[in-house]
Each structure stands twice: as structure tokens, then as C-alpha cells.
């Protein structure tokens, strides 16, 4: 079936299978930042934005993107570099395989919550697994990133 959608700001038309996942479709069209970790909504690696809200693309049928706007890390390169620099300065990216999904969710959180508490941060990101870092370095990076964003807005 045909979907008309907006991917990273560009309008496009694609053929998808009725039972195809958005994850599969996104990788097929070249958004390789979107990683497959489990296909059962258990890891957060495939997080993308659907109309600006974070979703697990392994659990969204591709046809549901019809008429809607999908954003992946390919469409947020400036933001990724800005937030990612804090992660890199902590050495907390480690293997990096969970990074794209994690970054998408942190960027969504930063838009949604103005000054999240540590508990709010931990709960917002609870679905983003990381096996390398033990999460501590990610938290340090997020705090520094949010402090910088807060400083810019003040």
C-alpha cells in the first residue's frame, strides 16, 4: 500500500506492506540511525518521533505513518551533535548502539519538560536500555546539557 508522509521535513510517497513495521520501513528508506534491538518494545533502540512525540518504531505499523510526520536522528543532526557532545565528553556513548534511540528520547524530553527533576528524567528514559554505561554517565551528560539549554533560555 502507498503512504504519503513527511520524513525529516521532506514530503515523500512510499510503498509499504500492511504488516510492515515503521522500524523496517525507516531502515529500508535509509534512516540507518534507527536501530533494531528487540522488535518487542523492550529496549528503546528504535525510538523515533511520530508527529513530534517519541514512539517505538518496532511497534508502529508503517501504514500508520500515512499523512503524518516522522523524525529520526538523521533529521536532527545539529541537536544530536549538541547533546551528543556532552555524552562524548563523559565517554558515556561507549558502543553507541543505543545512542540514537536514547538521543531521540532525551531530545523529546527536553522539549516536553522544562526543568525535569532527576526522578522525572529517570522515569522518562526508563525504556531506553543501555548495557555498557550503567546509565550514570548518561545522566551526567543530560544534566549538563539541560543546564546549558536552561542557561540559553534564561
Amino acid at each position: 500500500m502507498t503512504i504519503k508522509w513527511t520524513l525529516n521535513g521532506a514530503r515523500r510517497t512510499d510503498e509499504v506492506e500492511p504488516d510492515e513495521t515503521l522500524l523496517h520501513c525507516l531502515r529500508k528508506v535509509g534512516c540507518l540511525s534507527v536501530k533494531c534491538g528487540c522488535e518487542t518494545s523492550g529496549c528503546g533502540l528504535c525510538t523515533v518521533w511520530l508527529d513530534g512525540k517519541p514512539v517505538l518504531s518496532c511497534s508502529v505499523p508503517a501504514p500508520r505513518a500515512d499523512g503524518r510526520e516522522v523524525t529520526t536522528l538523521e533529521g536532527l543532526q545539529a541537536e544530536a551533535a549538541e547533546l551528543g557532545a556532552f555524552l562524548a565528553d563523559e565517554g558515556a556513548e561507549q558502543c553507541g548502539f543505543c545512542a540514537p534511540g536514547f538521543m531521540m528520547n532525551v531530545l523529546a524530553m527536553a522539549r516536553e519538560l522544562k526543568t525535569p527533576t532527576e526522578e522525572e528524567i529517570q522515569h522518562y528514559l526508563a525504556g531506553n536500555l543501555c548495557r555498557c554505561s550503567g546509565y550514570q554517565g548518561q545522566l551526567r551528560a543530560i544534566r549538563k546539557y539541560l543546564a546549558k539549554k536552561g542557561g540559553e533560555q534564561a
Binding site: 540507518l32 540511525s33 534507527v34 536501530k35 533494531c36 529520526t72 536522528l73 538523521e74 543532526q77 544530536a80 551533535a81 547533546l83 551528543g84 557532545a85 555524552l87 562524548a88 565528553d89 565517554g91 556513548e93 558502543c95 553507541g96 548502539f97 545512542a99 540514537p100 538521543m103
Partner: peptide, 21 residues
């Protein structure tokens, strides 16, 4: 010292650098 990993920025910006990519 705590220098950045050489591949850090490509990883955090989601570049296609893994086997499956």
C-alpha cells in the same frame, strides 16, 4: 586524561557504522 573517543561523534549522531548498516 579523559579525551573523547575518536569515534564518539559519529556514534552519537547515529552514523551508519555497524555491520547491519
Amino acid at each position: 586524561t579523559g579525551v573523547r573517543k575518536k569515534d564518539a561523534m559519529s556514534l552519537v549522531t547515529g552514523k551508519p557504522v555497524y555491520t547491519g548498516d
